[in-house]
Amino acid sequence: MTVTGAARLEARFAALAAQDRAAFVAYVMGGDPGLGKSAQLLDGLPGAGTDIIELGMPFSDPMADGGAIQAAALRSLNAGVRTNDVLKMAAKFRRTDTQTPMIVMGYYNPVHHMGCEAFAKACHASGIDGAIIVDLPPEEDAPLRDAFEEYGLALIRLATPTTDDQRLPTVVANTRGFVYYVSVAGVTGAAVPDADPVQKAVARIRAASGLPVAVGFGVRTPQKAAQIALSADAVVVGSAIVDAMARNGIKEALDLTRSLSDAVHTARQQA
């Protein structure tokens, strides 16, 4: 039987842990540069070694994102793509791939506009397993959390270098699937994280949450991805793939995905 929602994420992490492998998480912007090409890229991700897909929902004012993802969101919006189109694209993907966990990442206003209950229902119906809503901290996320719980979806929280020991329990409480560690204070795709503090943070968050920890923001190269994969349960790359797609198209983006996922998958064996 196929599991869905948070359980699909849990199953994937359990399987990878059994092989002592970190997961490779690829972020792509839904609808960039248009729905057709974006769907092709999405379909190609599992074949390029992606263990978990993070699908961006475009927003007009992406305050936490750097240039690459901002530009991707604008390309998507300018192509007429809206939140529902991204969910439809996900649903289409899910018809042929029932194994690869897929979460959406975006900002709260489009979700708020749709309504938390309607959004959770639509995610569930589209084969989405969870969501990261960047500007929705634990203090404000009760409406979405309740709706997600009802549908068995994972509301994934972010921990950051500014999340101290006092705050960490608040952040990890009620988190499902995994915790996303933002490895540098900054926007997506800007500074490059150092492996050492990341390793310490991962251990701290894993201990506090009992959940797998994915590390993202600033990881661009196979070398850096491999380094992070030694300690993290998952490595997320977004801006670099989005950039490759924008500059050189689908094939280059998938080639980069392949080299990143290979590096992540073999990191611990080669260490």
Binding site: M63, A64, Y108, V134, D135, L136, P137, E139, E140, R157, L158, A159, T160, P161, T162, T163, D164, R167, V171, V182, A185, G186
Partner: peptide, 22 residues
């Protein structure tokens, strides 16, 4: 205490900024 004016206001920022806002 949550920074609300009726149903408005609040603290909707990325986690990196939450400790700073607090």
């Amino acid at each position: 205490a949550k920074g609300r004016f009726g149903a408005f206001g609040g603290r909707f920022v990325a986690e990196t900024l939450m400790p700073l806002v607090l």
